[in-house]
Nucleic acid binder design. Structure first.
Length: 231
DNA sequence: AACATGGGCAACCGCTTTACG
DNA sequence: TCGTAAAGCGGTTGCCCATGT
């Protein structure tokens, strides 16, 4: 005979409107936080995590629903290029959008778009430096990571510095710059625009903020460099 | 009409980080 | 300093619906 106490499993699956109402009323009365208590005291048979997620992603005030604007899409693309799958950071730049929404939007809409862009850019780059897939005769192994690139960006590499990486006599790309143009980042998530192969000066400000810099000067520069996309 | 397939999205899982005693 | 609970986060799963065959 089983002597184990059967622990009641929290309810799962899609939220019903009445559950939303319960949660909304409870949070509006008692405030956010202590989600385990919310699930108990509100009468919801949901886990605390589930309640928190539902509130954060759907019930919280000022949540923006519906399709992304061109500006929002563009910002997601740029930021993802810089910082990869840091969805909460990206969402933080989009008022009313949640990390889950940004993540889903990326996975369903933007990833495909950008994959095409990357393929084109890599093909173009390989052509420029004489690499082809079948004959890697120059033994130049491309590193998998681009740490130096990321550091440069984090330190706010200037446009001038960036330009200096290009051989002005031939117009061809020096090795490092070339990496910056086509680099597949550590998380394999970034991409390259067809018409925008290099990280811009402006983009470096975005990354600065995302790195959580405490430096006030940098913060003020960021404010100048990048504004949130307002509805 | 019935079934298969794929896209979109909400929700869950599990790991990491943070807060607190 | 350590242990624990709560919260945060990104990856993954599974359901629903539209479209194609």
């Amino acid at each position: 005979m089983e002597n184990k106490q059967v622990k009641k499993q929290p309810k799962r699956g899609l939220w019903k409107p009445e559950e939303d109402l319960l949660l909304k009323n409870y949070v509006e009365t008692h405030g956010e936080g202590n989600w385990a208590a919310v699930s108990e005291k509100s009468g919801l048979m949901r886990g605390g995590k589930s309640c928190r997620l539902r509130w954060k992603n759907y019930l919280r005030p000022n949540i923006k629903r519906g399709g992304m604007s061109k500006e929002e899409e563009d910002l997601i693309i740029r930021m993802h290029k810089l910082i990869g799958n840091r969805w909460s950071l990206i969402a933080g730049r989009l008022p009313g959008r949640t990390d889950n929404e940004v993540k889903n939007y990326w996975n369903t809409h933007l990833k495909k778009k950008c994959r095409l862009g990357k393929r084109k850019a890599i093909e173009l780059s390989c052509h420029q430096i004489g690499i082809d897939n079948n004959n890697n005769n120059n033994n130049k192994k491309l590193p998998q990571l681009c740490d130096s690139q990321q550091k440069d960006i984090a330190q706010g590499i200037s446009e001038e510095e960036s330009n200096n990486l290009t051989d002005t006599t031939t117009g061809s790309l020096n090795y490092d710059t070339e990496l910056c143009g086509v680099m597949i980042p550590p998380n394999n998530g970034a991409f390259v625009f067809d018409d925008e192969p290099f990280i811009t000066y402006l983009d470096s400000f975005v990354l600065f903020e995302c790195m959580g810099s405490e430096d006030t000067y940098s913060q003020s520069q960021m404010g100048m460099g990048m504004q949130s996309i307002m509805p």
